[in-house]
Design a protein around this nucleic acid. Structure first.
Lengths: 154, 154
DNA sequence: ACCAATGTTGACGTTGACGTAAGGGATCGT
DNA sequence: ACGATCCCTTACGTCAACGTCAACATTGGT
């Protein structure tokens, strides 16, 4: 019987980069590139150097795509947003090791709140603009069908 | 009294490229580049070659930006959308010179309708996705303020 | 009538976000 | 045990969307 040496790999981190690629529709190059930019650090590695991705990494991929495609953020901007997001993690840490450096934490949380509010504001204006654009197009659609009617049936 | 020689310039097309740049926040380079791609043809020129933009050109600039920034379209994709948009112009032409080549027109209008519907569908799914993302962020905001409260006032 | 500001057409440079190929190990199913 | 498959790093290539610079012509206010 063989020994299952999974040296130093966090629990649940078992997806190889190729599998992640298939699941997400990205390429392996893209995943490595994102890592290079500090956007996505696979939560595990093997002694051989092979990357191992956990479900939480997959979720992060989703958020990156959202920010990039939906909001048109550059990867640098995405990085900023995601960095403030990690305050949550720090939060959980705090509940386990209560009150260590509260002053620093307050600043972190305040920053996170501000960043989040800015993002929310941007999301709202974006939503309004797209909505307006959508309405324009809906009107245009009706106008087109109107025109089409006046042309009779081919 | 001076003669106002505005050789062959459509009425209302009097904005120079620099003025358009200031008004829109774009650069002159960008305006020329868009023209190079066939996205934005200034509706007038002077005998000297100087570009002259009409209000309708300005409106077009707005639509290009919308498609590019709000929807994340490439300029090539923007071109396609705007091309189908010009069916409207053809429509006005028709009302002046009634019924010339109706068969061709029917096809044009049908294509425009289909393209418009596709765009509408995309707009709707985009709206939904952003809305979902927004809601997530709103929740996160409330959670952050919750955490902030437990930390007391600095 | 001048000249600073603005315009024109090339043409080459830059940046972000990857694609692609090379050279060499690691893994996995049979 | 071994070949096909997957993964690693390094490095150069690519493409869209402009930026920038050069060399020269026009415009417009004083």
């Amino acid at each position: 019987m063989m020994v299952r040496r999974q040296t130093e790999v966090p629990a649940g981190a078992h997806l190889r980069i190729g599998e992640v690629a298939k699941l997400t529709g990205l390429t392996t190059r893209t995943l490595r590139y994102w890592e290079e930019l500090g956007l996505l650090n696979p939560s595990g590695r093997r002694q051989s150097g092979e990357r191992l991705y956990a479900p939480s990494d997959m979720a992060r991929v989703g958020r990156i795509r959202d920010l990039q495609e939906l909001l048109g953020f550059s990867l640098a901007e995405v990085r900023v947003v995601l960095d403030t997001e990690d305050v949550d993690v720090l939060d959980r840490v705090r509940s386990e090791y209560p009150v260590v450096d509260d002053y620093r934490r307050v600043r972190l949380v305040d920053d996170a709140i501000e960043a989040n509010d800015r993002l929310l504001a941007r999301l709202d204006t974006t939503l309004e603009r797209i909505q307006a654009f959508r309405d324009e197009r809906a009107v245009k659609g009706r106008r087109l069908r109107e025109v089409r009617r006046t042309l009779g049936d081919t």
